[in-house]
């Protein structure tokens, strides 16, 4: 690997990590709403967070660009905060990566939370634990494998994001050029060896992450079906 390769991989990992770190809490809130609450608009929320899964990433990028771009009120706010809009910066790349990984994380979290018996949470409330403590002392410890698995899945998705990123963040070397967009550039310029090097890095990262993900998920499902004090 060459030095330029390493800096591209590091930037990609940074963007994907930040995207995942921001998306995970949001996804947890959405998953808690979907799994635990019965409210008006539940269906709409479900469709809305799943939308990035069904849309072409280019469309997501375009919508994001429109939202964060110069002309919107958000754009004005960004100018006030950062001096310019976040379009075509690494923040936009992280935003794009976060949005496309959101539905995957929400889905994994919802499954993980559905596997936790709500009666355990009710019991914890009765024993004096407030909602926040119930979440951290009961819900999360029982769902943690699914939560880690979902976060990893979101992370690989963020890492492999291309379509939305290139529209909203561009392909600026050293600033917004991630592994997928660098591969695209190298293929376009006919530099096949260099493209392959990064492709192998992508494959290796994906295989390792998915391997851990599947292992965790299998253990999480094993736990759910085993008799854990409650007959199913």
């Amino acid at each position: 690997m060459m030095e330029s390769d390493i800096s591209i991989v590091v930037l990609s990992l940074q963007i994907a990590l930040i995207a995942t770190a921001v998306t995970v809490p949001v996804a947890m809130l959405v998953a808690l709403l979907l799994s635990r609450k019965n409210f008006r608009g539940r269906f709409v929320l479900d469709v809305f967070v799943s939308l990035p899964l069904a849309l072409p990433p280019v469309v997501i990028g375009y919508v994001l660009l429109w939202i964060v771009g110069t002309n919107s009120w958000l754009g004005q706010l960004e100018k006030l905060l950062f001096g310019s809009t976040i379009a075509f910066t690494w923040i936009a790349a992280a935003l794009a990566a976060g949005v496309v990984s959101l539905p995957l994380i929400v889905r994994s979290f919802t499954v993980a939370l559905d596997g936790v018996d709500p009666r355990l949470e009710a019991a914890a409330r009765g024993l004096g634990a407030g909602p926040l403590r119930v979440f951290f002392a009961v819900t999360l410890p029982l769902a943690y494998r699914g939560v880690i698995a979902g976060s990893l899945l979101g992370f690989v998705r963020a890492l492999s994001e291309f379509g939305a990123t290139i529209v909203v963040a561009g392909n600026i070397p050293g600033q917004t050029q991630t592994v997928p967009s660098a591969i695209f550039t190298r293929i376009s310029s006919g530099d096949m060896d260099a493209a392959w090097r990064l492709a192998f890095v992508s494959i290796a990262l994906a295989v390792v992450t998915l391997g851990v993900h599947n292992w965790l998920l299998r253990r999480a499902l094993g736990r759910m079906s085993s008799n854990s004090g409650i007959r199913q």
Binding site: A122, A123, A124, R125, G126, G128, G130, G229
Partner: peptide, 20 residues
């Protein structure tokens, strides 16, 4: 008063113990 502030002990049909 929220359930966590009532301090009533609850015992359910199937124990509902924290499995972890």
């Amino acid at each position: 008063i929220e359930p966590e502030k009532r301090r009533f002990g609850m015992v359910y049909q199937e124990g509902v113990l924290f499995p972890h």
